[in-house]
Design a protein around this nucleic acid. Structure first.
Lengths: 247, 247
DNA sequence: ACGTGAGCTTGATCCATGTCAACAGGAATC
DNA sequence: GATTCCTGTTGACATGGATCAAGCTCACGT
């Protein structure tokens, strides 16, 4: 049978090979904008692909930094711990996004990265990324954009934490998730939350009860339908309006 | 007289020339870790030095991005505006720190940078910085560290906004300022605030009245002495303790 | 099929911070 | 030197969200 379908062999080989060039996330991830040629050079440096089980750490605060990580599939959270035990979720990351940028600064990770579902990541040794990006202008520039985007995102979160009230925060959170799922080809209106109410609350600077109440409120108002972690957005405009005008 | 002091001429020339190589902030700023040789190449790309008067914008949200800026002297704030008029101060920057990193991501600035006192900045054309950092490994690496440090700093602010109460936030803020003044050779215990209570409040996610009350409380407790914008820290340890244990 | 526990919802109450208001002190302007 | 405005302080009161508590739901393991 194999002899009549020679193509099959190629396909199975390409599936096995860990490579940006055959990753369907390449337009969302680090390889964005690279030529075929350049892509292959990037492939060379991504040798390690790792599975991380739900609940496991990809890295922990304090560990020595040597790689950044691209999420191939799955869902992560990052969190920071204070000495007194308080902690805060600093972000939720999905496929195509990079983890570990915080470690460059001190050569040690400054937060924990934990898988919220079984996930797969590509490890990118940072010194090799630096040397390759000295050679590939597009790679260098795009990497800078990614870091800058992280800074802009953080400013958005600061805005949210500093000036918005509970319901506005949750609306902003849902709209952001929706937009990121859309970019990955999923429905913008219907998705599963990978995180608990407590984790959402930690990210939004709220207690889990407040998050829960806000979900109920949105449901009463007909903005969304919630069933546990299953969310359907019924009225995007109301959520957007909620975010922009204080009412 | 000049003939008897030939050295004077050299000194005055070096003062006039805009250059990292003779800037006393070079160890805090972008040139950190560069050799004399490399420093001179960096000098070539920093042609523009600009004075910004107190209250004036260095750049505005929405403007096209083409340079990042190093603060040579003075003090800035950055802030973000929401459509509905709410705004939030996202940071205060002092000499040796970089401004404009947020603009790399979209090639447009995403916040406003405003001088809080008469200031002087060096404009660094970003495309030239990228090409130079393709040649100078140290420059590339240090630039990455600076961007990463900004991300880590933002996570700290998120932590502050998400989990700390008013007095803890103000204590963290004062300790952070103190530490940064120290790094610049100023007193760690005595300094002038360049920003108003309202700006501090906006940064810390508090109203100006709450900031004012917290200052008064710290003064009553003997942690600090406040007189308008003049601050003396009398008991660093109490401030640190306040920040770490919830009490 | 059943029991168990983690995660979620909802209600009652409390408190930190926001809001509103009056006033005071300095700096800037004329 | 008087006037004005901006900034900061303080008090009284309001309120959004935290806290405490009870009960519910559903996924999971046995």
């Amino acid at each position: 049978m194999a002899s009549t379908y020679p193509l099959n062999q190629e396909i199975s080989l390409s599936v096995i090979k860990t490579a940006c060039s055959n990753c369907n996330l390449r337009e969302l991830c680090l390889p964005f904008g690279l030529s075929i040629d350049e892509l292959e050079r990037l492939d060379d440096l991504i040798s390690t692909r790792r599975r991380i089980k739900r609940g496991d750490h990809l890295y922990r605060a304090g560990e020595v930094f040597d790689s950044i990580y691209a999420i191939r599939s799955g869902f992560f959270k990052t969190d920071v711990l204070l000495e007194d035990g308080r902690d805060q979720v600093t972000g939720f990351q999905m496929a195509g996004e990079l983890l570990g940028l915080d470690g460059i600064s001190t050569e040690h990770h400054t937060c924990n990265a934990i898988a919220l579902e079984d996930s797969e990541i590509c490890a990118i040794p940072f010194n090799r990324l630096e040397s390759l990006s000295r050679e590939i202008h597009n790679l260098q520039h795009h990497f800078h954009k990614v870091m800058s985007r992280e800074i802009v995102r953080d400013h958005g979160v600061m805005m949210l934490l500093g000036t918005m009230r509970a319901e506005e925060r949750l609306a902003a959170f849902l709209l952001n998730l929706s937009q990121r799922f859309t970019a990955r080809g999923f429905s913008h209106a219907e998705f599963y939350l990978r995180m608990t109410r407590e984790e959402i609350g930690s990210y939004l600077g709220l207690k889990l009860e407040t998050v829960s109440r806000a979900f109920s409120k949105f449901q009463e108002e007909g903005y969304i339908a919630v069933q546990q972690k299953h969310i359907r957005i019924l009225n995007v405009n109301s959520l957007k309006a909620l975010m922009n005008h204080r009412c």
